[in-house]
Amino acid sequence: MGNFLLLLQNENMKIYRRIRTWVMLGLIVAIPALFAVLVKVSVTDDPGAWDMFSNITIIYMLVSVFASVIFADIVASEFGWGTIKLLLIRPWKRSKILLSKLLAGILFSLISTILFLAVDFILSFALFHGRSVNEYPADYTAFSYAMEQMLYQYVDLLVICVIAFMLSTLFRSSGISIGLSIFILFARNIFQALLNPELYPWAKYVLFTNMDLSQYMMGGGQAGMTMGFSITMLAVYVLVFLAISWVVFMKRDVAA
């Protein structure tokens, strides 16, 4: 059988040969830089490098948005362009074509996360030399705390992206899937605030309540939730979303 890596190469070509992708990567560099420069010129006392690092990390939201757009678009755009008809008549099972798209999306999320981290580090340590005032929980250094935060944020991004991926296969329309994904990205904080597991016992099984793993960094969670519980819940949700994507993509008749 053919070489699966070539499928991945194809998907990458379709991501990185688009100007859009480079605009996104450019913004991932430019917006933190703009933010850092503004802080530098407007504040008289330099904050510490690690304090600045965690401030800039708030902009990681941007990476989540861009990665969601890539995932929400990656299947739907083929339907939108009509190229799906030429893509699915190759000697490849649909399951493998979908897998190549998922992996290409994950690769983009990794690249943009690493780029963001590098920019964050360089800006924080090149421009800011003040005294750090942030305090960290026991057992953490500034570095390990920041890295663990980042890891949880990446997990959060991946879950959103898997939802976007599912919407992309379900709706076959880039507009709807991108719109819905971004909506979920922003609205989930509201759900998280409303659905307090202390008040509603069932709320701890809701996806949004479990997405922020950093809630366990300061000790136990609400209503007896633990890190292990949340990871299990996330895994179950992700598997269900992927299963739906696969079943729908493999069964669907490509008409019109």
Partner: peptide, 13 residues
């Protein structure tokens, strides 16, 4: 080898 209806291509490539 097939063309199903119009040959839609990736326009940005």
């Amino acid at each position: 080898g097939a063309i199903v209806e119009n040959p839609e291509m990736y326009k940005f490539l």
